[in-house]
Design a protein around this nucleic acid. Structure first.
Lengths: 150, 150
DNA sequence: TATTGATTGTGCGAAATCGAACCAAAGGAG
DNA sequence: CTCCTTTGGTTCGATTTCGCACAATCAATA
């Protein structure tokens, strides 16, 4: 059985943890008052993937417990950013839809973010980021594939 | 004024967010009962950097508000993993010290983690991770340097 | 059809995060 | 020395996260 030095993993996870924290803070600074990253993520997901997913599909997409997604959706509904309809093909579940207001919130946030990130990108080697992206994607997929056993 | 496409930043931050979530879940699965990543981070930091930092120094090291650090240290003290002494050179602050129990908790966690991460590392291109680390470090430093203005 | 088991979503409670307000101590200007 | 500002730490309250328990519904099978 070969030896595998996990130290580079520690190092990379450590850097990633800090970057996640800083980038999330930066994102949330550009969102409306009490809106936080998970709220925005849902709005953005609905734009990118399309309306109509069930709460469980969203929970799985973001790898969060369903109770967390229930709470997030409740907050978005309080803002009138989404609306939920009962699922005609499954009496247990709902479907989630963006409202015009939700689309507006997301568009304004995207604009503010593009502005901020564009400034941020000036001091960064964008080519280097493009270069590391495949490795990150590969790592993410590997973590995603085998989690929660052993 | 040149155009800077922030899209690669979005992509990279997105991957990093997911990886952070999955790796944190994986870490916490190997920690004792109610212990979570921030607790372990403090123990590990005290081992690596040395005993005796003030709570504020720890808060700055982890980029968290001081109130969060107060809470984290309180939890660690409840576990008898650390102890706090008054700072002889500054009547306002404390100093944080590992206890024998804290050292033991950390060592056992490191062992369990090394085991788990070693298995994880088998399906991963470690060389690729080493290769992307400088870019991550550079990105982290850049985010760290200019945050919280504009 | 009736029953059993799995799945979806929610209510609840505990823990975590973090901003605002506050107090005590330190540091500096005069 | 006195006043004023800054800094370290805690308390408090609001929000978030998430496990547990539960009801409703679906799916599979006898």
């Amino acid at each position: 059985m070969p030896e595998h030095n996990p130290f580079p993993l520690f190092e990379v996870f450590n850097e990633i943890g800090i970057i996640e924290q800083l980038s999330r803070a930066r994102l949330e600074a550009r969102l409306p008052d009490g809106m936080i990253a998970p709220h925005f993520s849902v709005l953005n997901h609905l734009i990118r993937v399309g309306d109509g997913p069930t709460p469980m599909q969203l929970a799985r997409a973001f790898q969060v417990p369903k109770t967390s997604m229930t709470h997030t959706l409740k907050m978005l509904e309080k803002r009138a950013a989404i609306e939920t309809r009962s699922n005609p093909s499954d009496g247990r579940s709902k479907q989630v839809w963006l409202t015009a207001k939700g689309r507006e919130i997301r568009d304004q946030a995207i604009q503010a973010l593009a502005q901020d990130f564009s400034e941020l990108a000036q001091g960064i080697d964008i080519e280097a980021l493009k270069a590391i992206q495949p490795a990150l994607t590969s790592l993410r997929k590997h973590l995603d594939t085998n989690r929660g056993q052993s």
